[in-house]
């Protein structure tokens, strides 16, 4: 992960070092300001079986703050927010590796350190029985569910 490409956090931000399952780690600046999810959009991405991004749509680019070129070839955990409990992602990977659909509420980290909430669905992509990757589609979540997650997720660390 190339942390020097990240913009400096805005004043009042926090900083974290995230450690990922693949052994990599990343310094991330976090600003506690929410980017509202735009109405009517779906954020779509695809990854290879290892979780490396192979496709993003324009809504993904717009919400993440990264360019398409920065995203393609990068592990999907580039969006990982330190407020998300690692157990949530373990559950995600265990589910999709078993060939099942995973759904959940996720707080994502933007390039500028701000965050946005999504309701995400991830499914395995099978072609003639062979796994070629995963598709993830995020939609606008309800505030009620976000509030529940804001209360629950800190208890899962």
């Amino acid at each position: 992960m190339n942390s020097q490409n990240l913009e400096a956090p805005q004043s009042g931000g926090r900083t974290f070092t995230l450690h990922f399952f693949d052994g990599s780690s990343r310094y991330v600046p976090v600003v506690d300001v929410e980017e509202p999810y735009p109405d009517g959009r779906l954020i779509v991405s695809r990854t290879d079986p290892g979780g490396v991004i192979t496709h993003v749509n324009q809504s993904f680019v717009d919400m993440s703050g990264y360019s398409e070129a920065e995203l393609l070839g990068t592990p999907h955990h580039i969006l990982r927010h330190p407020d998300m409990p690692p157990a949530a992602f373990k559950g995600l990977w265990d589910t999709i590796k078993a060939g099942n659909r995973w759904q959940g509420y996720v707080k994502n980290l933007r390039k500028d350190g701000r965050f946005y909430w999504v309701y995400a669905t991830v499914i395995p992509n099978l072609r003639r029985g062979k796994l070629i990757g995963y598709t993830s589609v995020r939609r606008k979540p309800s505030r009620l569910r976000i509030k529940e997650c804001e209360a629950l997720y800190p208890t899962l660390f």
Partner: peptide, 13 residues
């Protein structure tokens, strides 16, 4: 079209 089907699958259910 496989991509569209995958996408629809994420939305159904």
């Amino acid at each position: 079209v496989e991509f569209m089907i995958d996408l629809m699958d994420t939305l159904v259910g």
